[in-house]
Write a protein that binds this DNA or RNA. Structure first.
Lengths: 140, 140
DNA sequence: CTTCATGCAAATAATTTGCAGTAAG
DNA sequence: CTTACTGCAAATTATTTGCATGAAG
């Protein structure tokens, strides 16, 4: 169980009800768009404003709590900042699943960066395809 | 030299002046946002409409001529469809550079997909960091 | 208490749409 | 000629901002 309040205070942000809930639903569902977050948090806090979501997402990204996951053909999703990983993205249902990268890819990326004199900060690997569930549906 | 007219006709699209120019500037500069394209093509075709750019980008993506490159914290860029590759993206100046992936990463991605019963269609690898030029600037 | 965060409403930016006129084949 | 494409203007959607009120520490 993650302590969202502490997570926020450590970065100098007040632990408001709204922020706690944003973190909690992002944590629960893994990857959410602005609208997903809004819809979900509204269930427990109906007077929530979209502007608050936008302001907080930007703020929490600056503070390194949230990370943007831009996706081909859709609005970005957001996830909690965590160890580097790749995404399997289903182009049918929109599902996003985390997968740990492993050292091998890591080494490859670092070698390339070194060769190009590129100061690498962050990797982003997205694999687009059709997930097992959607393959089932299509077959039927 | 790429024959843009043929490229378009092969996919059942008319080879208009606008489309030829969009392809030509994207080809020339490698990676461009909607606004970049608009600004550039306007130089040779001042009466161009932004709506035309949007319509054509969508159309050409459907026909597999253009590919979207979504980027953290910015508007997407577009590139000509070509062999799989990764992107080095400079977070200072916005530069995007192509790099060929190599078989090693390819194999890793396919293995993971197989293990997850994921039907892989498309890879997207973006490495974010600071390019050589911007490192120079910072140092000075 | 004091400061920072929220929610609203209004402003701005980004994208899409409908349609009459125009150009490609 | 005929169909598809463009450009405009209007509509829609997405995001940002300013400010008065309210909550956190």
């Amino acid at each position: 169980m993650i302590d969202y309040a502490q997570m926020l205070k450590e970065r100098g942000l007040k632990a408001t009800f709204q922020r706690m809930n944003i973190l909690s639903v992002v944590d629960k569902y893994g990857h959410m768009s602005v609208d997903d977050i809004y819809a979900e948090v509204c269930k427990v806090h109906p007077s929530l404003s979209l502007a608050t979501i936008y302001k907080n997402i930007i703020l929490m990204m600056e503070k390194g709590v949230l990370v943007e996951v831009p996706i081909v053909g859709k609005k970005s999703k957001y996830e909690l900042a965590k160890a580097d990983h790749m995404h399997l993205i289903c182009t049918e249902c929109g599902m996003v699943e985390d997968k740990i990268c492993g050292e091998k890819t890591d080494t490859i990326f670092q070698d390339i960066s070194k060769k190009e004199h590129f100061n690498l900060h962050k990797r982003q690997v997205n694999l687009y395809g059709v997930c097992e569930k959607c393959q089932m549906k299509e077959a039927s």
